[in-house]
Simulated assay, not measured.
Amino acid sequence: MATILLNGTPISVGGHFPHVGEDAHSFMLVDQHMQDVPLSKFYGRRKLIAVVPSIDAAVGLTIARRLEAMADLFDNTAVLVVSVDTPYALARTVQIEGFKKIQLLCTLRGRDFHKDYGVMITDVPLSGLMATALIALDTNDVVVYAELVRELNSEPDFDEAAQALLPPPPPREPEAEA
């Protein structure tokens, strides 16, 4: 069990948070159209998965907006924002915000996601919500970046996640001697 903070107060988070090098656990989430969305839908693409307590929480919307702005940086990458919200809340947010590059998903029928990804808040009154996290997977669903954000209302380190997803620069040609 991990501990994070809510405005400086410790809260418990249960489940197994993934570590770099592990295979990602499969999941079944729901999109804004109430359609089931499995992890396997994105196989062969890299995945950047942001977990937020709610898309209606300030931190959730801030993270979604930031990822929408960053999405073009990542070639062949699905950018997902996962919350406990209803598909109706996701649809409303997509319409109001005009999100086109990220996909909002919820745990309506995928409550195992909470424990399988180690983001299950167990302390009342927040039990049932998820901790803020950012997880990056390669094309084979292997974890290449994983951050359980220490403070529930804080943003993750987007730059570190981007570095884990972006391909390395091509090697430099050796300079010819004169």
Results as ranks from 00 to 15, higher is better:
residue 28 M to Q: 13
residue 143 V to Y: 13
residue 90 L to Y: 00
residue 33 H to F: 10
residue 106 C to Q: 00
residue 166 L to T: 05
residue 119 V to C: 07
residue 27 F to Q: 08
residue 135 I to Q: 04
residue 75 D to R: 11
residue 32 Q to D: 09
residue 132 T to Y: 08
residue 159 D to Q: 15
residue 175 E to I: 12
residue 28 M to A: 13
residue 1 M to L: 13
residue 110 G to V: 06
residue 151 E to H: 07
residue 39 L to E: 04
residue 128 G to C: 04
residue 75 D to Q: 13
residue 65 R to Y: 03
residue 17 F to S: 07
residue 111 R to K: 15
residue 139 T to D: 10
residue 90 L to K: 00
residue 68 E to H: 09
residue 84 V to P: 01
residue 62 T to M: 09
residue 98 G to K: 04
residue 144 V to K: 06
residue 157 D to H: 15
residue 113 F to E: 02
residue 168 P to T: 05
residue 6 L to P: 01
residue 83 S to D: 01
residue 102 I to F: 01
residue 103 Q to M: 11
residue 131 A to W: 08
residue 151 E to T: 12
residue 126 L to Y: 14
residue 105 L to S: 00
residue 12 S to Y: 10
residue 84 V to A: 02
residue 60 G to C: 07
residue 103 Q to I: 12
residue 106 C to I: 00
residue 164 A to H: 05
residue 82 V to L: 01
residue 8 G to L: 09
residue 162 A to Y: 01
residue 176 A to M: 13
residue 130 M to W: 01
residue 61 L to N: 05
residue 70 M to W: 05
residue 147 E to Q: 14
residue 159 D to K: 14
residue 122 T to D: 07
residue 142 V to G: 03
residue 78 A to Q: 06
residue 133 A to S: 09
residue 130 M to Y: 01
residue 113 F to T: 01
residue 30 V to G: 00
residue 9 T to F: 10
residue 59 V to D: 03
residue 110 G to L: 04
residue 161 A to E: 10
residue 79 V to L: 07
residue 76 N to G: 09
residue 125 P to K: 05
residue 174 P to L: 11
residue 161 A to N: 07
residue 32 Q to F: 11
residue 15 G to S: 07
residue 136 A to V: 04
residue 89 A to V: 00
residue 93 T to W: 00
residue 172 R to A: 15
residue 16 H to C: 08
residue 42 F to V: 04
residue 137 L to C: 05
residue 49 I to Y: 06
residue 76 N to R: 14
residue 119 V to H: 08
residue 141 D to I: 02
residue 83 S to M: 01
residue 9 T to N: 15
residue 50 A to K: 04
residue 127 S to C: 14
residue 3 T to W: 04
residue 142 V to W: 11
residue 134 L to E: 03
residue 91 A to N: 09
residue 117 Y to F: 13
residue 33 H to R: 12
residue 128 G to W: 06
residue 103 Q to S: 12
residue 86 T to I: 03
residue 9 T to Q: 14
residue 136 A to D: 07
residue 89 A to K: 00
residue 79 V to H: 02
residue 91 A to R: 10
residue 145 Y to D: 03
residue 135 I to E: 05
residue 76 N to W: 01
residue 169 P to I: 06
residue 93 T to H: 02
residue 88 Y to P: 00
residue 3 T to E: 14
residue 37 V to L: 06
residue 92 R to W: 01
residue 87 P to V: 04
residue 146 A to G: 07
residue 107 T to D: 05
residue 174 P to S: 08
residue 65 R to L: 08
residue 148 L to W: 04
residue 114 H to W: 11
residue 151 E to C: 09
residue 177 E to M: 10
residue 41 K to Q: 14
residue 134 L to R: 07
residue 70 M to Y: 11
residue 122 T to E: 13
residue 39 L to G: 08
residue 174 P to V: 04
residue 167 P to V: 09
residue 91 A to Y: 05
residue 19 H to K: 14
residue 58 A to K: 11
residue 103 Q to R: 15
residue 52 V to M: 00
residue 1 M to Q: 14
residue 45 R to H: 13
residue 162 A to C: 08
